[in-house]
Design a protein around this nucleic acid. Structure first.
Lengths: 247, 247
DNA sequence: TGGCGCAGATTGTTGAACAACGTGTTGCGC
DNA sequence: GCGCAACACGTTGTTCAACAATCTGCGCCA
């Protein structure tokens, strides 16, 4: 997977982030322990900015420019780069710098393969009375509200919260960590496509349905439904990639 | 400075690594592309040393001491720390430094849970004609040779090669990456116990058996056998932990 | 047109310095 | 003696300036 410069989405060119603006960010370097939110570390801040689309996939990140931008030293920034590269959010090529990862078709295939493997396995073995079921329910409700409000970004985060809660059914920190990384990478793929409505809008009902099946008929039945759901989602993403000429 | 007096062997237990010895390591910072081996980056070098038991689990790693030891700057070392911490090999507590991760019982449980989930799932869906089957066979043979030679470290690496080849059956880079990290963490647990013969010796025959079942009866049957195998391995590790008073 | 070499820009790394934080110790009061 | 606050020390966090190593783009020449 050489770093073919993902010039994918047209959005890449527009973002002139290199205007002389410097942001003074309050970085504590100590995790604030909050359950969610962007955290206090530079890596978390960068991660949030990437997820927000401020640095589109494929964008090259200059050390000096970004260091000035965030009012940190190059060395500190490089440490954050290593963390994010380890999470698959950044691609690091020695002597050629880092750029925001730009998932290719092969990556999308792999991500969905692992997601299917992971999520269906968890759901099939899960206990219907697990506390995370409430979180799944809350996420479904939040997604519904967001849809009603036309807040597609909110739909996206609620959708991700649903699947994260689903993986939490396993009570496995490592499974959850792996899934978080997958979700972050997948979000990059969504940014490549750049059409949140098509991507997330159709699946809020499916989330609810999976949850209902889980409550009524148990894990294995819900897992089968989830597998179809994920495959359809994969097809949607791949279709969008093909339409963009990234096949 | 290029002496490199290789005092490796036997240094494991006492581990007074803070004698003024400085090792000049040839670090290229560009991955040498080799399929195995310790690679050229500082992070890879550190990782190999940790795996070799030179820095035992729980050991605190002083920045200035290690930087001198490897003849690198503190900043460079800190970048390597971030990489390894992202892989779960090091624990990083802000303002308190990094130490070699020391898996607790809960970690062992989680690692084996994920391994079962991952490896059995892969094996159940795998194709009997997959090229990695040859690698599995080679690993089994290598393990047999190592047992015959009494080379328990060799048995351990061959065992790990077997399971890595098994996961390769999925053709999924991300699954493979996750498994590599799990294996690295598990190796730390083995270092905590420190009895390679008991841990690896018993399982070479089981590897061969799983492989034969896979070839003869297909993936699902082999997966069932593998699950029992992993559960027994987990029990062995947990038993050793309990015996050490780490329960 | 196509390859060559050079200059500029960027990354990789170093060393020193200081700030911020944790930790262990000292000394005091009780 | 015991508990507790102030202090000194060591370590980590971060910055800065500099240089080496490497990549990239451009002009040049055949």
């Amino acid at each position: 997977m050489n770093s073919a410069p993902g010039r994918a989405a047209g959005a890449a060119s527009g973002g002139t982030y290199d205007d002389g603006v410097t942001e003074a960010a309050a970085l504590t370097s100590v995790p604030d322990g909050g359950p969610d939110g962007e955290g206090g570390t530079l890596a978390d801040l960068l991660s949030a900015r990437i997820a927000a689309g401020e640095f589109p996939p494929g964008r090259r990140l200059s050390e000096t420019a970004l260091a000035q931008r965030f009012s940190v030293s190059r060395n500190t920034l490089r440490e954050a780069f290593r963390v994010l590269a380890g999470q698959g959010l950044l691609e690091h090529v020695p002597h050629r710098g880092v750029s925001v990862a730009s998932p290719r078709v092969g990556d999308v295939l792999d991500i969905y393969r692992v997601r299917r493997h992971l999520e269906t396995g968890v759901l099939a073995r899960a206990d219907v009375g697990h506390p995370s079921v409430d979180r799944m329910r809350a996420a479904v409700a939040a997604a519904g509200d967001a849809v009603a409000a036309g807040d597609w970004a909110g739909v996206g985060t609620a959708n991700m919260a649903f699947h994260e809660a689903l993986v939490s059914l396993s009570d496995s920190p490592r499974l959850l960590r792996t899934h978080r990384q997958l979700a972050a990478e997948l979000r990059l793929a969504f940014l490549v496509i750049g059409d949140p409505q098509t991507l997330h809008g159709r699946f809020v009902a499916r989330n609810r349905s999976v949850l209902d099946t889980f409550a009524a008929d148990g894990g294995p039945a819900a897992a089968r439904e989830l597998e179809d759901y994920l495959t359809e989602s994969e097809r949607t993403v791949l279709g969008a990639y093909a339409r963009l000429g990234l096949g």
